[in-house]
Design a protein around this nucleic acid. Sequence first.
RNA 1: CGGGGCGUAGCGCAGCCUGGUAGCGCAUCUGCUUUGGGAGCAGAGGGUCGCUGGUUCAAAUCCAGUCGCCCCGACCA
Length: 571
Amino acid sequence: MRFSKAFLPTLKETPSDAVIPSHALMTRAGMVRQLAAGVYSELPFGWRAMQKAIAIVRQEMNAIGAQELFLPVLNPLEVWEETGRARDFGDEMFRLKDRKGRAMCLAPTHEEIICDLARSFVRSYRDLPQMWYQIQTKMRDEPRPRSGILRARQFIMKDSYSLDADQDGLNKRYDLHALAYRRIFDRCELKYFEVGASSGLMGGTGSQEFMVESPHGEDRVALCNACTYAANLEVAESRTASIHDPENPDPSGQPEEVSTPDKRTIEEVSGFLNIAPERLIKTLVFMTGPEQSAPVMILVAGDDEINESKLLAVLGGAFRPAHPEEIKSSFGVEVGFLGPVNAPKMRVIADPRLQGGRNRITGANKNHYHITGVDVERHFHVDQWADLRTAKEGEICIQCGSVLRVANAIEIGHIFKLGTKYSSAMGANVLDAEGREHPIVMGSYGIGIGRIVACAIESSHDASGIIWPAPLAPYDVMLIALNVREPEIARQAEALYADLQGKGFEVLFDDREVSPGVKFNDADLLGLPWQVVISPKSLAKGGVEIKQRAIGQRSVIPMTDLENTLRGLRG
RNA sequence: CGGGGCGUAGCGCAGCCUGGUAGCGCAUCUGCUUUGGGAGCAGAGGGUCGCUGGUUCAAAUCCAGUCGCCCCGACCA
């Protein structure tokens, strides 16, 4: 491609609404253009990078035997009502009506459509296994699109689905996907890691995320400094130093009320009574059940934060924090003075960190009072022990005993063992060898194509611009002709342009009549792996000048060595 | 959904407080000169100041509403 003819609008200045490096650079390099919040046009330079990522994904998906198909984005809402996800997705699903008034939606993902195909065409265990994938535009009305294309409302995703007769089959298909994903991200030269994850809205029995560490990532992950343990903070476990309880002055006594006027938060009470926060018992009340009308009491140590993902898994269904009025009517007390002792009867779930606690402090269920000397299980009953706390930086790895750190990361892939959630809801069944009907056992697997590209830039750039990993680079070589009005330069540059292309290199040829500075700056901004400069100076030295973008060093080499040098650099 | 900020030329911004001819830099177009890190000179084009309404002799500027965009949080395959 000739730069003089290309639709490649580079920008000298960073648009004011680009906050993170990948967004700023993608905009400045003429890769994308925002049309609305979370909606982007992919311009030619950016689209080429996307196509590189797509080609890699496609090859590796085909390599594990998956078959590509293409599903509709425009869906009748009915299909989504069968599984209840029309409701679960809520406002995140774009909805519309067709001219006849039929309720339609724009697909945020495609499990339902896959299930619909499966129930129509898959009858027997002999038809299984199947792996189907597509590279498709997804629509989600995100409450807050942000970070450029990292969190968009319209984005391209590779999504695949496996259909199996049993759990063993699912495990195999899941492992195949994990393998393919590792190959894909390796080939894209991303420094990724895998974490155990929550399956959230998707349901199912297990899931892993593929993450790239980045300060601009929206996910938080716990990583072990020594071993391979890594988990999304939503599910991460950790060990903590045990809580030191001073002897209870009266081991068989009852808790004692202390006045704590206007001290509501852990911090206030801890400061006021001069007692370590971990010895306070934090009491929260959530409403759960089908009507969200059943209260449940959650107890954790005062210095811990409730982990809502873990709580969701334990409660097994939707929940919400109780309203202050609900608490007032059942406990007769303000939030802030709640406690498990002499509380109204309700299900009590406590974090194991409280187990065996002695002489602890908690709310008195009386405004402006707390109680001290509380012994766990002697003074109140616990129905269920469950890990409900959020792991923190510096805590102990459950695998190896080393120290955990917490980092931000960008999710580039996610694989799920769905099980039969969708197939049973939609009646996608197969007959087994004995002629009995079973729901198909499904898996679902996603990769964010745009995130691959954005992550590559996010983790490989400098002050001048992008530094492409070669496999994702929109072109292999930036050929720069300086002083193109000089006939000899023009002639040699044209010849080189044709020659390199003939040898299979993808070349962006800067043939513009602009000053050298403009060309060098654009070349660094666009970040192609190699820059080849042809100029009076280089010709005088008997060749062309070559610069590897990542390293920055220039050297002049004979024209005849160019091909070998470029191939050598390719690695 | 809560909090904050911003909408003025393609991009980056000033002007608004204190109402009175819409500006600057970059980019664009023409001509000449220029070619190793975002060139020089001369000339030119480009704006319903997000939108609607109000106040006023007069509104980019003041008031109200509305739409859009960004950020923090909540939320989130």
